[in-house]
């Protein structure tokens, strides 16, 4: 069980988090691992607090839902407030810089300009999910870089490969900086 990593991607509807979850799970498959992805359905998938969940493991994954997560991404304050309590002790919290750094000293917090990088550097707000995946990957090494790149290029719309490759690069750089 120790090699099982549970990830919750949260934000608002329309930020592409479900696609982000799918890409992350496919990246894990590219690494030869098992992965399960699930998401919120109904009205919340179209606005408000939205989430996608991914479990990555070397073994079979039985219970398919994420309970307490190892990694939490929150792109909005609302999502962070909603899901922060589900992050395990020693877990990794990745937040957009617009989100207040929470008052928890048992976790590692990375506050980075994810949304700004997408909207100002790449000038495509919709690639914030890809920037975030690169950030998570760079911090946690939950998948290999190559697998993540492969998964991104397989899923994104034709003609947007360059933009998304760029988004990955900028995301990786955010952590190195």
């Amino acid at each position: 069980m120790s090699n099982q990593c549970e990830i919750r991607l949260s934000g608002s509807g329309g930020q592409g988090l479900i696609l982000g979850g799918i890409i992350l799970a496919e990246a894990a498959l590219n690494d030869g691992k098992n992965a399960v992805q699930s998401q919120s359905y109904g009205p919340e998938a179209r606005g408000g607090a939205s989430k996608a969940e991914v479990i990555i493991s070397d073994n079979d994954i039985n219970y398919p839902k994420v309970r307490e997560c190892d990694i939490l991404l929150s792109l909005t304050q609302l999502a962070c407030d909603e899901y922060l309590h589900t992050l395990k002790e020693n877990g990794v919290l990745v937040i957009d810089e617009s989100v207040k750094t929470p008052d928890r000293d048992d976790i590692k917090v990375y506050s980075l300009p994810i949304l700004k990088t997408a909207s100002e550097k790449i000038r495509k707000p919709m690639v914030a999910n890809i920037v975030a995946l690169a950030v998570i990957n760079q911090i946690t090494k939950v998948t290999t870089k190559e697998s993540l790149e492969g998964a991104v290029l397989k899923r994104v719309p034709r003609g947007t490969e360059d933009i998304n490759t760029n988004a990955l690069k900028e995301g990786f750089n955010l952590v190195n900086a």
């Binding site: 799918i22 498959l29 992965a35 399960v36 992805q37 699930s38 998401q39 359905y41 398919p64 839902k65």
Partner: peptide
């Protein structure tokens, strides 16, 4: 709903 909606290998 769980089996129908979850994505898995």
């Amino acid at each position: 709903e769980v089996i129908g909606h979850m994505r898995e290998k």
